[in-house]
């Protein structure tokens, strides 16, 4: 019932959805980071799968995933790490987030089967727009996994309608025109962008890119169903698990206070 688990996450309150690159700074430390964000109140976790050429990512995540690759992390390792976290009793939904080519190399059919076995709930693939996703979409449906699509401030009404029609689980709204990475300020036009998508769909809307602290997360949680935080947590991962937990608690508190 994995897709249902994702959908039900958004029904009670806005969701805090951290991104943790598996394998950074070490595989063990990245598992600790997942445990820490879950203990801090994360409602769902995006488990980052490294790729050599992450063209939608800013420098923080580029450097982290590069390190993960140097640590020998593969799709296979990521699946094992997810399974290990499940075995420890962590129940929040897990989404594997990564670029398409390593998934293709693993084989999409194998991947979705292995993901279901590891009790992963879905996929986020930034370089797989709906036009190219037929095969992956069908495989995910068979396994009842979510395949999350993106919308961006540049998306036209036609593209919003297309994604609204295909989306299951939630839609990932890119908060800004750019790559991942914490920013000092949110875009002024973000509320209108979320409202534009809201008018076209009942699917939950999670907002990510550029959100780095509790204050920004609280702002976003006022009009979105989920708040995704990546780079700001990754920077803390370089310091300590305690630092990750402190930021995750700040953000979870802000998001859940609404």
């Amino acid at each position: 019932m994995t897709l249902k688990t994702i959908e039900s996450t958004f029904t009670r309150r806005p969701a805090f959805m951290p991104y943790i690159p598996l394998g950074y700074p070490t595989p063990a430390a990245s598992l600790d980071a997942v445990r820490a964000v879950v203990a801090a109140g994360a409602d769902m976790v995006e488990l980052g799968v490294p790729f050599s050429d992450p063209l939608a990512d800013g420098q923080t995540i580029q450097a982290a995933t590069q390190r993960a690759l140097e640590n020998g992390v593969t799709v296979e390792t990521c699946l094992q790490m997810a399974a290990q976290l499940r075995a420890e009793g962590i129940t929040v939904p897990f989404l594997l987030m990564g670029y398409l080519n390593p998934f293709l190399a693993f084989g999409l059919e194998n991947l979705t089967a292995a993901a279901a076995r590891a009790e992963i709930d879905g996929f986020i693939i930034p370089d797989l727009p709906p036009e190219e996703a037929d095969e992956m979409d069908a495989l995910c449906r068979t396994r009842n996994l979510a395949l999350v699509y993106f919308l961006a401030p540049t998306s036209t009404p036609e593209r919003i309608a297309l994604v609204a029609q295909k989306a299951r689980g939630f839609i990932y709204l890119v908060a800004l025109t750019g790559v991942t990475g914490a920013r000092n300020q949110l875009s002024d036009t973000l509320p209108q962008f979320v409202a534009r998508v809201r008018a076209a769909t009942n699917t939950p809307l999670a907002v990510g890119f550029g959100i780095g602290d509790g204050a920004q997360a609280r702002q976003v949680a006022q009009f979105a169903d989920g708040v995704i935080v990546g780079s700001a947590l990754v920077k803390r991962m370089a310091k300590s698990t305690a630092a990750v937990r402190a930021l995750a608690e700040e953000i979870a508190g802000a998001v859940h206070s609404l």
Binding site: A56, P126, P129, A152, S155, V163, V174
Partner: peptide, 14 residues
Amino acid sequence: GGQFVPETLMPALA
């Protein structure tokens, strides 16, 4: 071929 790019670029390609 195809268009395997982030959503932000899809409208620009169109």
